[in-house]
């Protein structure tokens, strides 16, 4: 039975994947969603993404993303029919709106808007998966191999945030101890006191930066080539997923270059079920992690092998 709570996805396959394999998988989903505007492709990718979300046990978090994306999706669904005049099946026309010189709403533009809304939903769902299955430490571990100075700044910054929160609370306590009461002050005084607290926090934090740098230097940081170790093993399951995702990326780019999977919404929508051979290839690659996850959850033998 799936454990409820914030760590529901802790034991799932997606959480146990090598970060590189998971990241390349999410990237392949993202690229396919942005490469093709074919409604059948977008529907299939959305279905795979939802399957991955269910496998990763982050459905609860996805619902929050759905609520959050509602405004953006609505904006895209509405703007497209308003600005496009290319559709041939006119549903409504007439109103004069500034900048839009005679409003024409066509069925094709409505469908295009819906397809783009679906694309946005896919993109946000992929990020929901990413945020809930890959820990920031894992991403930093990957990027530190290529750009270690920016990765170092990010990890130092992450470490400093809770310290800053604590320091700011201490400053507020000090202000109270000194006899200042926010509730009895006017707006100007409150603002001045707040500015002083913020300045004290910035000053204190920058002084702390000096101490951090000296502590790092005293531990021989920067004295030579740095050592690095990774806690994450690249297992057979990761290799299969990685190969599948790379194949999907390659096939999608080649397919797009030769014109497979292309779809025209304007002036009249094309036949929706065309170019499905490429889609079958893409789906095979994208479903590998979902199937591996099923094996991880339901088959002990497979779990021991992947």
């Amino acid at each position: 039975m799936i454990k409820k709570g914030p760590d529901t996805c802790k034991g799932c396959y997606f959480r146990n994947m090598h970060p590189a394999a998971a990241l390349v998988y999410y990237m392949s989903l993202f690229l396919v969603a942005l490469l093709f505007s074919h409604p059948l492709y977008l529907t299939a990718i959305l279905a795979v993404t939802i399957l991955a979300i269910i496998s990763a046990r982050v459905l609860k978090f996805w619902k929050i993303y759905l609520k959050f994306s509602l405004f953006m999706t609505l904006m895209i669904v509405l703007i497209n029919p308003l600005v496009s005049r290319a559709g041939s099946t006119v549903l409504w026309s007439g109103a004069q709106i500034p900048l839009l010189d005679g409003l024409i709403i066509s069925l094709e533009a409505v469908y295009f808007g819906l397809a783009m809304g679906m694309r946005l939903l896919i993109v946000l769902s992929i990020f929901c998966l990413y945020n809930n299955t890959i820990h920031p430490d894992q991403t930093l571990y990957l990027f530190s191999k290529f750009t270690y100075k920016p990765a170092l700044i990010i990890s130092l910054g992450t470490r400093l945030i809770p310290r800053m929160k604590r320091d700011f609370e201490n400053i507020q306590d000090l202000i109270k101890i000194r006899g200042f009461d926010y509730t009895s002050l006017g707006f100007k005084e409150k603002l001045a006191l707040f500015r002083q607290s913020v300045n004290a926090l910035i000053y204190n934090s920058l002084e702390g930066a000096w101490q951090i740098a000296e502590a790092m230097h005293s531990r021989a940081f920067g004295s030579g080539p740095r050592s690095q170790y990774g806690r994450w093993l690249l297992r057979p399951g990761d290799l299969i997923c990685l190969a599948g995702s790379c194949a999907v990326i390659a096939v999608s780019f080649i397919g797009k270059a030769v014109g497979a999977g292309s779809y025209e919404y304007y002036p009249k929508m094309e036949y929706i079920f065309g170019g499905s051979r490429l889609l079958a290839l893409i789906l095979t690659g994208l479903l590998i992690p979902v199937l591996t996850s099923w094996g991880w959850d339901h088959c002990r033998f497979l779990r021991s092998r992947i």
Binding site: F146, K149, P150, L156, L160, I161, A209, W210, I212, H217
Partner: peptide, 27 residues
């Protein structure tokens, strides 16, 4: 941009000051 930063010799103090300022901006 990051590649240029990576190739430059930057001091530890510079890096930690940037880390502090970016975390203040983020918080």
């Amino acid at each position: 941009f990051y590649w240029i930063c990576e190739k430059k010799s930057l001091s530890v103090k510079y890096l930690s000051v940037i880390a502090v300022l970016s975390s203040i901006a983020a918080v």
